[in-house]
C-alpha cells in the first residue's frame, strides 16, 4: 500500500527557514512510523535526519510529532493513523539541530535541577534497604519514565516558559520524593515548590496524553502539589 508522508525539513546552518517535503512510499503491513522513516532515509533521501536506537519503546530516542501529537515513532503503527497524509515534525519547544533532531540539552538541564538522584543521609545497611511491594507500587509507574521528552514538549506551559521545569522533571522529583527509602524529599520539594515548578502546571493533561509509557503524570504532579500545600516534611 502506498502512503504519503509530509516531513518537516530544516537545517539551520543552510536553510533560511523550515519547509515540508512530501514522500510517497510503499509500506508493508505492520510498519511503524520509524520503519517508514528508515525506508525513506535508506531508499529515497539520505539527507533526512532523525534519532532512533532501540526500536522497542524503551530508549526514548525517537519521540517526535506525528499528525500533531507527540509520540514515539517506533511505537506508532502506521495503520492507526487513518488514511491521509502523515505529517511528521520535531518535538515542539526545543531548538532544532536538523529535521526531527532537536537539542535535548534544555530538557536534561531542567531534569538536573530537581536533584534527580537517590539521596540518603542515614547510614546504609550492609544489605538492602527494605521496601514493601506496596511502598514500591507508589513509584513503580513513575520509575518507568524513559526521558523521551514527549510530555514536557507537549505542555503549553512549557511552550510559554522554557524555564518551567516541565512534567518529566516533576515526575522524576515525584519518583524520589515518594520513594520510601529516600531522604531528599524536603530539599527537592523546596526546589519544585516554585512558580517555575509545581505551580505552573494547570492540569491540562497534555503530558499524560502524550506519554508513550501511559504514565499518569498529571496525577503525580497533583500529588506533589498536595504535599507542598500540606507541607508534610
Amino acid at each position: 500500500m502506498k502512503r504519503k508522508f509530509r516531513i518537516f525539513r530544516y537545517q539551520p546552518d543552510k536553510d533560511k527557514k523550515p519547509y515540508y517535503k512530501e514522500y510517497e512510499i510503499e509500506i508493508e503491513d505492520g510498519w511503524t512510523v520509524l520503519d517508514a522513516l528508515n525506508h525513506i532515509h535508506w531508499y529515497v533521501d539520505g539527507t533526512l535526519a532523525y534519532r532512533r536506537a532501540c526500536r522497542s519503546e524503551i530508549c526514548g530516542s525517537c519521540a517526535m510529532r506525528i499528525n500533531g501529537k507527540n509520540r514515539l515513532a517506533c511505537k506508532t503503527q502506521i495503520k492507526t493513523l487513518g488514511s491521509g497524509t502523515i505529517k511528521i515534525e520535531p518535538l515542539p519547544g526545543l531548538p532544532i539541530i536538523k529535521d526531527m533532531v532537536v537539542d535535548m540539552d534544555p530538557f536534561f538541564r531542567n531534569l538536573e535541577k530537581v536533584k534527580p538522584y537517590f539521596i540518603k543521609y542515614s547510614p546504609l545497611p550492609e544489605e538492602e534497604q527494605l521496601q514493601t511491594p506496596e511502598e514500591r507500587d507508589l513509584i513503580n509507574e513513575a520509575a518507568m519514565c524513559i526521558l523521551c521528552g514527549a510530555c514536557t514538549t507537549s505542555c503549553p506551559s512549557f511552550w510559554a516558559n522554557p524555564d518551567y521545569l516541565g512534567p518529566a522533571a516533576l515526575l522524576k522529583a515525584y519518583r524520589f520524593i515518594f520513594d520510601s527509602r529516600d531522604e531528599g524529599g524536603k530539599e527537592r520539594l523546596e526546589i519544585i515548590n516554585d512558580r517555575n515548578g509545581l505551580w505552573r502546571c494547570h492540569a491540562i493533561f497534555n503530558c499524560t496524553e502524550a506519554c508513550p509509557k501511559n504514565i499518569n503524570i498529571t496525577h503525580y504532579i497533583k500529588k506533589l502539589q498536595n504535599l507542598a500545600v500540606n507541607n508534610q516534611f
Binding site: H41, G46, T47, A49, I97, K98, D99
Partner: peptide, 10 residues
C-alpha cells in the same frame, strides 16, 4: 548522500 556536517545520519 548527505554532505553536511550537522547531524549527518548518512
Amino acid at each position: 548522500e548527505d554532505k553536511g556536517v550537522r547531524f549527518n545520519l548518512d
